[in-house]
């Protein structure tokens, strides 16, 4: 029996105990991070990046019900924004906080630019067009040597600093990412509960009936695309700053598929599910160190299994953050 099943099916007090347990582990992990060896902090950092990416992509897939297989393109836009504006490549050395809004806007613009033509299409074509778009961006990055450094990528990116405080060690990025994830998570969760979020759900359930109650579905879907792209782009900028190196290899189709996988396994349409999915995605290779190459095979099979047996994922949509809070602190 999965954790979520226990949470939702069992008697309230035992569910509450488990909620508390999970919550306590999360708090303990956060509190312990400063004292962990760098290696583990780096693992947790990539976990947080994946959560951030998942929060972004989930808006399109989970809330609006559109399959976007080119999400990694927005991640690349953000990463290359930082790489170009803070490196010897173009000899630009902008501060991190100035790049972040630029990356966010570029991401949103790319999202809208892609969205305007393709969002009119039938839903299943969208998957294939976004997939093609992701590949186009990767091929362009790979071949635009004078700008992006081609397959070699861009190295020696500037150390990031925020308001004079240098952000360079893994632990610095841990705090930066933690704050970003929390802020993005809360905003997106509130967005889901807003009237726009309800419209997204209506589009997911029945696009035509959604039009019938006066929803301009093209605009609502564009908003979803743009918000999702913005978050992906911000994740990319932080990723570039923490690696201080970018290359096309980080932005392959497989990366897009992994994020989709993570969302579906964790629980489609639920922020808590993304955390669970990211944890599985990141912790699995740590647990199965000897079978690292089996990880993706296992994840692929797990996804098929879950879609058939438990389509709601590990943490179902109905067990959202509000329910967790009620379990923890409410009656």
């Amino acid at each position: 029996m999965s954790v979520a099943e226990t949470l939702t099916a069992a008697k309230p007090h035992s569910g509450r105990a488990i909620s508390f347990l999970v919550f306590a582990i999360a708090i303990a992990l956060i509190a312990a991070s400063p004292f962990l060896p760098n290696y583990y902090v780096r693992v947790i950092n990539s976990l947080l990046i994946y959560i951030l990416l998942g929060i972004g992509l989930n808006i399109v897939i989970g809330y609006t019900g559109l399959l976007d297989l080119g999400f990694v393109a927005f991640y690349a836009v953000g990463a290359y924004s930082y790489a170009l504006l803070a490196s010897p490549q173009l000899d630009l050395h902008w501060p991190f906080l100035a790049i972040l809004p630029v990356a966010a806007c570029l991401g949103a613009a790319t999202g809208i630019l892609l969205g305007i033509p393709v969002l009119r299409l039938r839903g299943d074509y969208l998957a294939i067009v976004t997939l093609g778009f992701g590949e186009i961006i990767r091929i362009i990055i790979n071949n635009l040597d004078w700008l992006t450094g081609g397959p070699k990528g861009i190295a020696r990116l500037d150390k990031a600093s925020i308001l004079g405080i240098q952000v360079a060690r893994p632990i610095d990025f841990f705090w930066l990412l933690l704050i970003t994830v929390l802020v993005a998570g809360v905003l997106v969760w509130r967005l889901e509960r807003s009237i726009l979020g309800k419209a997204w759900a209506a589009i997911r359930e029945d696009q035509d009936a959604a039009r019938g109650i006066g929803i301009n579905t093209t605009n609502a879907k564009l908003a979803a695309f743009a918000t999702s792209a913005t978050i992906g782009s911000i994740a990319g900028a932080i990723f570039a700053a923490s690696q201080r190196f970018v290359s096309p290899e980080s932005f392959t189709l497989q990366e897009s598929v992994l994020i989709v996988l993570m969302i579906v396994i964790g629980g489609i349409g639920n922020i808590l599910g993304i955390v669970a999915g990211a944890a599985i995605l990141m912790l699995l290779p740590e647990v199965l160190r000897e079978f690292a190459e089996w990880r993706i095979l296992f994840l692929g099979l797990l996804m098929i299994f879950l879609i058939i047996v438990r389509p709601a994922g590990i943490v179902p949509r109905s067990f959202g953050p509000d329910k967790l809070i009620r379990r923890l602190f409410g009656k």
Partner: peptide, 9 residues
């Protein structure tokens, strides 16, 4: 609720 989208968006 979602019917109030045009008014509230």
């Amino acid at each position: 609720e979602v019917c109030f989208y045009p008014a509230d968006v």
